[in-house]
């Protein structure tokens, strides 16, 4: 391959826009992914992206700007998921599955029946760097700045409520607010990155950089730098690979993330894989379901 061929895509403004978008999306997903994975919320990220897809399809039909409509739809879904998760009245996984896949199915039905005015069906599902406008870049940059500001200004309450929500609550942290705020940040991030990474692949962009960062570091603070850095690098490399291989950008970005994970796994010879244990929902000590087992001495 000649230098001309290597540098060729950089002559096209739409590619440069897509590259910048992928870099911003990688940093954003990597940053939020640290909280999502450590809270055992990976499935929520996956479900929320599907829920927002319904909003993408419905908003233009309702005469509402796509971003606003999908954003409100996503926020409502996020708060509903958060409420279900906290209430424990029904299984959170089951409830999330019902709500989000129904929303996704509704989106598919609407797009199939009425068509769409925004990104193409394939682009929404698998991501695309085509047609990234300046407005999209500003939305991504704004979402990244917003997330960074939230995580800096509320670092300690978010950390405490992630590690030990019950004790955090007792210690004066407004855990319900922290949970709702995180869901809001997550829904904004998914909304901003959806057309770049795609509905079906957003969860991987959220999870893989954070899990890889966890294997590289035992420090929460350092993870908040490493994970976005991995997301950024994989976003750039994946976008370039998308151009060269003529494969949807979401696919190549996720595959690049997966390759980074495998490289770290191989270099560490699997020794740090154990750190990722516990990246699932841990028991709520004060919940009625978690009463300690007491066996009387007979």
């Amino acid at each position: 391959m000649t230098w001309t061929a290597i540098l060729d895509p950089f002559h096209y403004q739409f590619f440069v826009n897509g590259l910048v978008a992928a870099i911003l999306a990688g940093a954003l997903c990597g940053l939020i992914g640290v909280f999502i994975t450590l809270r055992g919320m990976s499935y929520i990220g996956h479900g929320l992206s599907h829920a927002i897809f319904g909003g993408f399809a419905a908003a233009p039909l309702l005469g509402v700007p796509t971003i606003l409509g999908a954003g409100l739809w996503g926020l409502a879904s996020a708060l509903a998921i958060n409420g279900v998760t906290r209430s424990r009245r029904i299984g959170a996984d089951a409830a999330i599955g019902v709500v989000t896949t129904s929303s996704f199915a509704l989106g598919v039905a609407l797009l199939t029946r009425f068509g769409n005015k925004g990104p193409t069906f394939d682009a929404l599902l698998f991501g695309s760097i085509n047609g990234v406008a300046a407005g999209d870049l500003w939305l991504l940059a704004g979402a990244l700045l917003f997330a960074a500001a939230v995580f800096t200004l509320l670092y300690r309450p978010l950390l405490f409520s992630t590690f030990d929500p019950e004790v955090a609550d007792v210690s004066g942290v407004r855990v319900a607010w922290m949970d709702a705020l995180l869901m809001f940040v997550l829904s904004v991030a998914i909304l901003a990155t959806l057309s770049i990474v795609g509905v079906t692949l957003v969860a991987a962009a959220l999870v893989i950089p954070a899990v890889t960062a966890r294997m590289l570091s035992d420090s929460f603070a350092r993870m908040l730098w490493i994970s976005p850095a991995i997301g950024t690098a994989c976003g750039a490399i994946g976008t370039y690979a998308s151009w060269q291989l003529e494969i949807p950008s979401g696919t190549t970005i996720v595959l690049t993330n997966a390759a980074a994970f495998l490289v770290v796994l191989a270099l560490s010879r699997g020794r740090t894989l154990g750190r990722t244990a516990g990246l699932d929902d841990h028991t709520d000590a004060l919940s009625p379901d978690a009463a300690p087992v007491a066996v009387p001495v007979r």
């Binding site: 990722t276 516990g278 990246l279």
Partner: peptide
């Protein structure tokens, strides 16, 4: 127990309601 924090960071968590910055 796999959560990425040190002993000092864990103990400091109880001041989270007083000061939010890292």
């Amino acid at each position: 127990w796999s959560f990425p924090v040190t002993v000092a960071e864990c103990v400091l968590m109880s001041r989270a309601a007083r000061r939010a910055l890292p």
